[in-house]
Amino acid sequence: MNNQSFSPLSAAEMAFIWKQYMNDKAISCMLKHFLCQVNDLDIQKAIQGTLHITTKNSGTLTAIFLKENMPIPLGFREEDLNVEAPKLFSDSFYLLYLKHISNVLLLSATTGVDVAARNDVRSFFAACY
């Protein structure tokens, strides 16, 4: 067994998984609202796929927090989401939003891989590619 997998998280690793968790939770809330408003079926599928990824990421990060006895950040929750709110953006904006958050999350993942010393954290960020 590799002793590296049992080493405590470094400050940089903690910061990056915390940031990733907060990003995923905020993006998930936005995407859930978009799903209630979108009309274009292709864009709807893209939103659903991205929501699946952010939900999966949040679950993986929650497991790391629990394993490390770290508090789980509150992030954005279902109570923060009003699916009844009127549509604010066009379907083409939703697609543009997906493009931009993909770029932001890709940059975050590549930096996360660079700072991660532990295999589980590095594997998580590598999977985010």
Results as ranks from 00 to 15, higher is better:
Asn3Ala: 12
Gln4Lys: 13
Phe6Gln: 14
Phe6Cys: 13
Phe6Val: 14
Ser10Tyr: 10
Phe16Met: 01
Phe16Cys: 00
Phe16Trp: 02
Met22Trp: 00
Asn23Leu: 13
Asp24Pro: 14
Ser28Gly: 14
Met30His: 07
Met30Ala: 10
Phe34Ala: 00
Leu35Thr: 05
Cys36His: 02
Cys36Gln: 01
Val38Ser: 01
Leu41Thr: 15
Asp42Pro: 06
Asp42Glu: 15
Gln44Thr: 06
Lys45Ala: 10
Lys45Ser: 12
Gln48Phe: 03
Gly49Ser: 15
Thr50Met: 09
Leu51Met: 10
Leu51Ile: 10
His52Ser: 13
His52Pro: 08
Ile53Gln: 13
Ile53Asn: 12
Thr54Gln: 06
Lys56Gln: 12
Gly59Met: 01
Gly59His: 02
Leu61Met: 03
Thr62Met: 08
Thr62Ala: 02
Lys67Val: 06
Glu68Asp: 07
Asn69Lys: 07
Leu74Trp: 09
Gly75Cys: 09
Val83Gln: 04
Lys87Cys: 12
Asp91Leu: 04
Ser92Tyr: 08
Phe93Asn: 00
Tyr94Leu: 09
Leu95Thr: 08
Tyr97Trp: 09
Leu98Gly: 06
His100Ala: 05
Ser102Phe: 04
Asn103Ala: 12
Leu105Gly: 04
Leu106Phe: 13
Leu107Arg: 09
Leu107Cys: 14
Ser108Met: 13
Ser108Thr: 15
Ala109Lys: 02
Thr110Asn: 08
Thr111Met: 06
Asp114Val: 13
Val115Ser: 07
Val115Ile: 11
Ala116Lys: 07
Ala117His: 10
Arg118Phe: 03
Arg118Gln: 07
Asn119Thr: 13
Asp120Ala: 06
Val121Ile: 11
Ser123Pro: 00
Phe124Gln: 01
Phe125Met: 07
Phe125Trp: 07
Ala127Asn: 02
Cys128Ile: 05
Tyr129Gly: 12
